[in-house]
Design a binder for these strands. Structure first.
Lengths: 231, 231
DNA sequence: CCAAAAGTGTTGGGACTACACCCATGA
DNA sequence: TCATGGGTGTAGTCCCAACACTTTTGG
């Protein structure tokens, strides 16, 4: 079956830049797929696919992310729409790019469900990319870094109960920057968005750390006042 | 002539939220067009149109803006892509929204070039809008306000030579907020992005104000350091 | 000399930075 | 008792907000 329109239409795809956080070795990584076909056969690319008509583009991105990574309910947001007519040599393909952030340790090697193979790359050592994907990725890195300063996405990557050191590690990894431990703790505590659970770690070979959880209600309050996290 | 594709494709449009600044009465306004056809006949809408294949979506937005408003080289940037399948009752239409900012006094009544009539509305008194345009407009207002804090778009709305009071008026109008005159001046001067031209106003019935111009080189320096304007 | 807008300096408080040491735990 | 990471307080600096009066100009 085919589809006929009065005027020509560009094709529409969704591409999702999936960032994975490896808190263990302080690296921010990206999931890329190797292209099995021309054009750019053998080059690495940001995973993506066509938007099914009748499907919202947000849903297309969520579907894509789940197929690729098997995750739901992670940070996922629209980045930008790239619409140069020559970004794909075959025809005019407009792509709506999304950014996602997942905990890499939960999604280790997880090959793509289609024919292509998928692999994590540290953002500091990227391979050659297909299409205009280098440009998309550059914008995605800027976005994820600025986003983490304003929204509590760092918390999404941690277990419900976490220590302040774990939280600090997430920030340091995404922002590729170290913070002073004392100042970081003071800042987080003064924001009033984390709750001391009155519990501690167990089975650690050193002083057990206190456990905290995100106080979502307080967070939403802060958010309303345009609150950034000041990190 | 018609166009046939193997898989169905959503239609793709560009809608541009055109903000006009009226420095005289401190209002931020939006240019809307009245719809001549169904659906939403008689309702007001954000001006827009289809993306011609082979045309970049940025170019489509620039073309749209020039047709609608007769302006070039003003602030214009992509806002967000809206892709719910039911946002248009006829079929799945994905729209890439843009935001523009022009000086309303240069573009007074300027009716749209197509059949519909165009009118400026203060953002505080908007009519009923077609489609999901209320949602688009809300996001556009947030964007223009946050943008003006980070980028020197205020300067685009002023003549090459301007006074500090004029500059302050632009900020106050877009942000719908008043600033302390002394602090505003100190801030702007300390940023080092404006040059004192050593000239003054003429033909004013009060003390003549000094004239300044934007120092674009210094501005780009500041921009590199992620510099926001702190207003 | 009056009206109208231009122009300017100081002070207090809050937030950030930088910095070094003691504490609890299990091996 | 040692190794490991957890946990804390203070002082200096900078930036911001708040605030009122004098100056220049043309009418």
């Amino acid at each position: 079956m085919s589809h006929t329109y009065k005027y020509p239409r560009p094709a529409l795809t969704v591409d999702t830049v999936i960032f994975g956080l490896d808190v263990k070795d302080y690296t921010l990584q990206v999931l890329l797929v190797e292209r099995a076909q021309q054009p750019f056969k053998g080059k690495w690319a940001i995973p993506g696919g066509f938007v099914d008509p009748g499907e919202s583009v947000d849903d297309a991105a969520r579907r894509e992310l789940e197929e690729e990574c098997g995750v739901k309910n992670v940070f996922l947001e629209q980045l930008y729409t790239f619409g140069d007519p020559d970004r794909d040599p075959r025809e005019h393909v407009v792509t709506i790019a999304y950014v996602a952030l997942v905990n890499i340790n939960d999604h280790k090697v997880k090959a793509g469900s289609d024919a292509s193979k998928a692999e994590w790359f540290p953002v500091s050592r990227l391979p050659k990319l297909a299409f205009d994907h280098r440009k998309i990725l550059k914008m995605a890195i800027e976005r994820i870094q600025s986003k983490v300063r304003y929204r509590p996405i760092a918390f999404e990557l941690l277990p419900k109960k976490f220590t302040l050191t774990q939280l600090q590690n997430v920030y340091e990894t995404v922002l590729e920057k170290r913070f002073d431990k004392r100042n970081f703790r003071k800042k987080m505590q003064s924001l009033g968005i984390i709750k001391d659970l009155g519990q501690t770690q167990t089975k650690v070979t050193h002083r057990a750390a206190k456990l905290y959880s995100l106080d979502r209600k307080a967070y939403r309050e802060l958010e309303k006042q345009g609150g950034n996290l000041g990190v």
